[in-house]
Design a protein around this nucleic acid. Structure first.
Length: 752
DNA sequence: GGGGGCTATGGGGGG
DNA sequence: CATAGCCCCC
């Protein structure tokens, strides 16, 4: 008989049971630092050791980094078979499958992936086409409505029929979101483009509609499914998981790992409800709770436990450690954000000399990316190497996106967003007026931007400019058909004039841009030279189209530079899953952390608290918290109270007792120095109190009467027109220059 | 059609 | 404050 594999001896009892329960549904509730990744990887290794083929295992993560980490750890146990495990992010795995199956749902194999910028640009255009007021229809808000609809499996038709959603949109003064959504989906389809949510939604559609038995094919293929960070899945992801796992005679080999206390992505639709639903959907579920923390010393663990008790509604769980008591948590106060930065940098220097900590062992974590600046300033001044993650990613930089747009346009002639970006960059005399005319023709005759460009009749001069542009792109496209990604990219870089343009800019910024541009080209070269295994598949296709597919889902965090010794600066969200010997959590102030956006709803504060919980549990030995009494925010000096979270830490775990304010912080809105408050845009009408307002029936609103509106105040009805069942009143409100057009069936007006 | 400057607006997290 | 969209002027 074979001896038990040695990796099983590296596990505690609960971990080992979780690893060895291979069949049937399993839920692993894993506290921070409890060996979650170890359990996941050893479980996969154990599956392979038990004779399961690596490609029959599907492991879904939220970041590429987590997937890579997992694979490299599996590799240590089972060797290079690990490469063939289908491990990757939800988005990348589904994108890869869709690339093969897309025609079954009416998409081309070489579909484009629209990033957030593309999506917003498209929405901006749609809002314009529909003649909607872009002050009430904010692209960001509209996109987030669409995104959350998709994440909840609500297609445009269902959206248009949901009284609840329509009501919400009306309240937010954007009643026609449902129409924008419908148009947006059609335009994406027409462009052969998917946005991030579509990668999930259309994969769901593929399985659900089941053309050619494709669902059964993938159900059979993925015999074992694992989901990491389950607390951050949304409804759509859960639905996909169920489609893969639930079928007649299924062994339901599904293992999900998560921690409700670390759920920090509800803003993008994640719901802890999935954990509860999972328990209901799989009654034979086996639950394992990992509560022993191997990462942090006692004071840190105790503080984490204490803090999280302030949240209601959580799965009962208490992490513990048998590590030493360790250092107490240090709290640093600065009078200003600048002083906070300096004192944090001072503390880093002190830790480095006294405790011999390397840069890589240190992280500065903040709530918002904008906070990195001051820390960068002092680290630079002290000659400490650092690296900022997040913020504007490499692929979002203008010079990089421009080049990528050229590549996209050269591969997919229907990619309207790419074309609009490059048609006149570098300048070639095709201006806004021409572009508008092309867009209008495309809209009118339902053509792609590219086809409209070829069809439109304008002045001789303009037409020849357009022809020259089309000829150029056609040559790029031809090159892309035959040459590899690098040759094509170089051909495009030179042929488009981008190379020359960027090279010729001698300014500091220009040199930086040219460097980024070259870094992109180097990346293409690397792509064609290395046979990478991605998501369990060896990439042999070296075409530009494939390259584009591979980079579409990359972020800043994926860019590994591990030989360098640098201090890590990143948002707390980005730090999830990581650990550092010494962690600085900075900016612990009311309105910043917790964010002012969260202060109105208790459940949002709870999420901020979970975020704080995530932050402090990244630390192994040294945890330092900091705040500033004042800081520049949005162009103004603001005074914020210390964060309520500071008070939730047990006092005997804090070193600098007395720094924290004794009294409960005042949670009122930020105070402003002097009278720098920006004047309110337009006249802010007097708000009408709830009780004083009795809306009149629609029939009472007639021309000439004076009415009261909750937001706009008093006004005179000048005119009523519009369709019978959608009457529009033109009302002149006091103190508002332009008359408002108000739909009577929605608006609440009181006749005075 | 291009460029510069004004102003409104955001202001959070990310695949 | 930083940025982006928009408007106006050349």
């Amino acid at each position: 008989m074979e001896t038990a594999p040695s990796y099983l001896e590296e596990l505690n009892d609960v971990q080992r049971n979780a690893v060895m329960t291979l069949e049937g549904p399993v839920l692993v509730v894993a506290g921070p630092g409890s060996g979650k990744t170890r359990v996941l990887t050893y479980r996969i290794a154990h599956l392979i050791r038990s004779g399961v083929a690596p490609w029959e295992i599907l492991a879904l993560t939220f970041t590429n980094k987590a997937a890579r980490e997992m694979k490299s750890r599996i590799e240590k146990v089972v060797g290079n078979k690990a490469n063939y495990v289908m491990a990757g992010t939800f988005h990348s795995i589904f994108a890869r499958i869709l690339r093969r199956e897309a025609p079954k749902i009416g998409y081309p194999n070489d579909f484009t992936i629209y990033d957030t910028d593309d999506a917003k640009s498209l929405l901006r255009e749609i809002i314009k086409i529909k003649n909607l007021d872009n002050t009430s229809y904010k692209v960001g808000a509209v996109l987030s409505r669409i995104s959350s609809a998709k994440s909840n499996l609500i297609i445009p038709k269902a959206y248009a029929q949901s009284e609840e959603l329509l009501q919400q949109d009306r309240m937010n003064k954007m009643p026609y979101v449902y129409q924008i959504y419908d148009k947006y989906v059609k335009r994406c389809e027409k462009a052969g483009a998917m946005d991030f949510d579509d990668l999930l939604l259309l994969f769901f559609k593929l399985l659900y509609k089941n053309p050619d038995g494709v669902r059964q094919e993938y159900q059979q293929k993925f015999k074992y499914v694992l989901v990491d960070e389950f607390q951050d899945t949304n409804y759509l992801q859960y639905a996909i998981m169920k489609l893969l796992v639930d079928y007649h005679g299924s062994p339901q080999n599904i293992c999900v790992v998560g921690d409700d206390a670390q759920s920090i992505y509800s803003f993008r639709g994640a719901t802890i409800e999935n954990i509860l639903q999972f328990e209901r959907d799989y009654p034979t579920l086996k639950v394992f709770k990992l509560e022993q923390n191997y990462r942090s010393t006692h004071h840190i663990v105790q503080a984490a436990n204490e803090i999280i008790t302030n949240n209601k509604n959580q799965i009962k769980k208490k992490i513990w450690t048998d590590l030493i008591e360790g250092e107490r948590i240090k709290v640093i106060k600065g009078m200003t954000d600048g002083e906070e930065g300096r004192r944090v940098a001072d503390t880093i220097v002190e830790q480095k000399t006294r405790n011999h900590i390397k840069n890589t062992d240190i992280a500065i974590l903040y709530r918002t990316n904008a906070q990195s600046r001051v820390f960068e300033e002092y680290l630079r001044r002290y000659n400490l190497k650092y690296r900022v993650f997040g913020g504007l990613s490499f692929y979002q930089r203008k010079e990089v996106k421009d080049m990528i747009s050229y590549m996209r346009a050269s591969c997919n002639s229907k990619d309207d967003e790419a074309f609009k970006r490059i048609i006149n960059y570098p300048k070639r005399g095709i201006g806004k007026a021409t572009i508008d005319k092309i867009s209008a023709l495309a809209e009118e005759q339902d053509l792609s931007f590219w086809d409209a460009m070829g069809k439109i009749k304008l002045t001789t001069r303009t037409n020849s400019l357009l022809l020259a542009f089309r000829t150029m792109i056609a040559s790029f496209n031809k090159k892309a058909q035959t040459a590899d990604a690098y040759d094509t990219a170089m051909y495009i870089a030179k042929g488009s004039g981008l190379y020359k343009l960027l090279k010729g800019d001698p300014t500091i910024e220009g040199i930086g841009r040219f460097e980024n541009f070259n870094a992109l080209l180097d990346g293409v070269k690397e792509f064609i030279e290395n046979d990478e295994v991605q998501n369990g598949v060896i990439e042999t296709d070296k075409s530009l189209g494939t390259y584009l597919q591979n980079i579409a889902l990359l972020t800043d965090l994926d860019d590994e530079k591990d030989d360098d010794d640098y201090i890590t600066l990143m948002s707390i969200h980005a730090a999830k899953g990581l650990e550092f010997k010494s962690v600085f959590v900075v900016g612990l102030e009311e309105n910043l952390f917790p964010s002012y956006m969260s202060l109105t709803l208790p459940e949002n504060i709870d999420e901020e608290r979970r975020l704080f919980y995530v932050a402090i549990t990244r630390a192994e030995r040294y945890l330092t918290l900091s705040y500033a009494n004042s800081r520049y925010q949005y162009g103004q000096m603001r005074f914020n109270d210390p964060s309520r979270f500071l008070e939730e830490i047990p006092q005997d775990s804090i070193e600098s007792y007395g720094v924290v304010m004794k009294k409960k912080p005042d949670f009122s809105s930020p105070k402003l120095i002097g009278n720098f408050k920006r004047p309110q845009a337009r006249n802010m009408p007097n708000k009408i109190a709830e009780g004083d307002f009795n809306p009149s029936p629609q029939s009472a609103i007639k021309e000439g009467v004076t009415v009261l509106h909750r937001k706009f105040g008093k006004g005179k009805v000048e005119m009523i027109d519009g369709h019978q069942n959608n009457l529009l009143a033109t009302i002149n409100f006091e103190g508002i220059d332009t008359p408002k057009r108000i739909a009577l069936k929605y608006a609440k007006l009181q006749v005075l």
